[in-house]
């Protein structure tokens, strides 16, 4: 029973595992870059979720063929295209913030930064 669930829905298990790893990186790590890496893992695991939910077994890419065929769901792909752009933009903002922080404080360690900004 449990195994059935795992086999039928392993995609979700993978994504939540990845997501938890990313979450830990964001809140557990002290290095700002590692935080950003965690953030990226966190966001991309969500994209995995969307895209895997769009899968239809035996489906082909949603580009219309002459003969009738089974297509995978196009909508999540569209959404994720948008979301990827959002994630990349956030990452860009985050990285430029890190650059500025490094210029100001000379370190990327959160504890040291807190100490310095006292």
């Amino acid at each position: 029973m449990v195994l059935d669930i795992i086999f039928a829905k392993y995609n979700y298990i993978i994504y939540i595992t990845l997501m938890t790893i990313g979450f830990y990186g964001m809140i557990g790590k002290r290095n700002l870059i590692k935080k950003l890496i965690g953030m990226s893992i966190f966001q991309y695991s969500i994209f995995l979720f969307y895209v895997s939910a769009a899968d239809v077994s035996g489906g082909t890419a949603p580009i219309l063929l002459k003969e009738p065929a089974v297509y995978v769901n196009p909508l999540p792909h569209v959404l994720i295209l948008t979301a990827i752009v959002v994630a990349v933009s956030t990452l860009a903002v985050g990285l430029s913030l890190v650059i500025r922080i490094y210029k100001e404080f000379g370190t990327l360690d959160e504890d040291k930064i807190i100490e310095l900004s006292r």
């Binding site: 964001m26 700002l32 966190f42 969307y50 959002v86 903002v93 985050g94 890190v98």
Partner: peptide, 25 residues
């Protein structure tokens, strides 16, 4: 000081936005 404040806000904000995105999903 606002740089670190903004960075922390960004981390929290991304968590929040991702949760929302997942909920929407």
């Amino acid at each position: 000081h606002s740089l670190t404040a903004s960075f922390n806000y960004m981390i929290m904000g991304t968590v929040s936005a991702s949760f929302i995105l997942l909920g929407i999903g």
